[in-house]
């Protein structure tokens, strides 16, 4: 059911992705605030098929030189490319004080036993400002291989960025800043260098009182 309806290819599927802040020492969900969240653990045939976006519409929002989105897309495979529009939830009741943990967790699954490399590039005006590269090994569980990046600490740049964003008085100002803020995640098979997933993230601030929202698109080139 997930094919065509969620982020994944026959080789690797995203199960969950979240960026959060948490009061340390009390790791129950009550003290955890999710800035963004994707959960694809229960795909259903009733879920709508993904819409598509022409990848050329967003080239300049991501690195354009060597290893940039254009080059990655041309190399393919095209079915591994996705765009996520996040409406991030900045309405946190957790006070920002020492001891707050800022983290990112993600989980992927596959029918193959691989070692994966996940690169996350934070970009400002399309230029990379920081990159984190993580390597994950498979764990066999319930008949499939799971890759879990658990509570990876958010970088200083992102924490400062969130702080500054929250200080802006109006949502339209935040959205204006977010227009030039993007993240590109590339997951590759470490041993074969095959591209498994490429996810481009763009952002607005959520106006909902029900937490973060998102739309997922396939990236295509007609």
């Amino acid at each position: 059911a997930w094919q065509g309806r969620s982020i994944g290819t026959p080789k690797l599927r995203l199960v969950e992705f979240m960026a959060f802040m948490e009061q340390q020492g009390e790791p129950d969900a009550y003290n955890k605030h999710l800035y963004v969240h994707i959960s694809q653990s229960n795909p259903s045939y009733s879920d709508a098929l993904l819409e598509s976006v022409d990848v050329r519409q967003i080239y300049d929002k991501f690195p354009e030189k060597k290893g940039g989105l254009k080059e990655l897309y041309e190399k393919g495979p095209p079915n591994a490319f996705f765009l996520v529009k996040f409406w991030a939830d900045l309405n946190t009741s957790i006070q920002d004080e020492p001891g707050i943990f800022y983290g990112v967790s993600s989980q992927y699954e596959s029918s193959e036993n691989m070692t994966i490399t996940c690169s996350s590039k934070v970009c400002s005006f399309g230029k990379q400002v920081v990159e984190k590269v993580e390597t994950e090994y498979a764990r066999f569980e319930n008949g499939r291989f799971l890759y879990r990046i658990h509570r990876s600490p958010m970088c200083e740049y992102l924490i400062n960025f969130i702080h500054k964003l929250k200080q802006l008085p109006e949502k339209y100002m935040m959205n204006s800043v977010l227009e030039n803020f993007t993240i590109l995640q590339v997951v590759t098979n470490r041993d074969t260098q095959e591209l498994l997933l490429c996810i481009a993230y763009v952002f607005e601030v959520s106006t909902s009182e029900h937490g973060a929202q998102h739309h997922i698109y396939r990236l295509v080139k007609d």
Binding site: Q57, F125, N180, S208, Q213, H215
Partner: peptide, 24 residues
């Protein structure tokens, strides 16, 4: 720096790109 970017609103993006989903 880069030349001025085209605002996202002026790009060919699906209408849903500007519609925050309702919570399920």
């Amino acid at each position: 720096g880069k030349p001025d970017q085209v605002p996202m609103r002026n790009r060919q993006l699906p209408p849903s790109f500007w519609e925050e989903p309702r919570p399920s």
